[in-house]
Amino acid sequence: MTLLLHDVTLTYPDGESRLTALDAVGLEVPAGTLTAVVGPSGSGKSSLLAVAATLVTPDSGRVVVAGRDTAPMSAAQKSALRREHIGIVFQQPNLLASLTAAEQLQVMAHLSGRPARQLRRRALELLDAVGLADKADKRPHQLSGGQRQRVNIARALMNEPTVLLVDEPTSALDHERGAAVLDLLVTLTRERSTATVLVTHDRAHLERMDRTVTMTDGRLADPVAAA
């Protein structure tokens, strides 16, 4: 199993008490499949992504990414895991203002200690795959919202992740551009055999998913029992 969350509970301090963001959540995502997570605001969807991305350590439960249990990992080991195995598509593109579209991808290689210059070709191929071959040397302020979101997706794929975590990628886009981004995610998930988790509010996306789970008050309404 490429991504496995088993009995994960996460709480945050809330005044003198604690707020339960995830309550015994279990989720399995096989390679090459898309799982949508839907639910009202504040239900715990983003917390689920944060835990899966190893950005937050749960109070209890197991998070296994690419066969590796993250519980005993140090912060540095989790950083390495994110670099090598996890691609994150942020809700906002979160591109670095000083980098061109190609460099947004090259920096991922550089983070992994690989020579960014030698990986420009791969960056250009990925930009071509998201329809931005002619925008490789443009900076974020020279791109439209949709184009920035596609760079965001391409960046997440640069290190060939086994897990792709996507946080409401179309929320800032119009219907047409949103549909194009979704097409891209479906295609890339199939072609590159990633385990993709997509947090969305848009019910129109769900028919393209392999599986949909609903979160309510930190619980998955239809969770699949974890192994």
Partner: peptide
């Protein structure tokens, strides 16, 4: 904000 993004993407401190 850029530092947060780079950390989230796996940049070591």
């Amino acid at each position: 904000a850029d530092v947060a993004v780079l950390k989230a993407l796996g940049a070591a401190t």
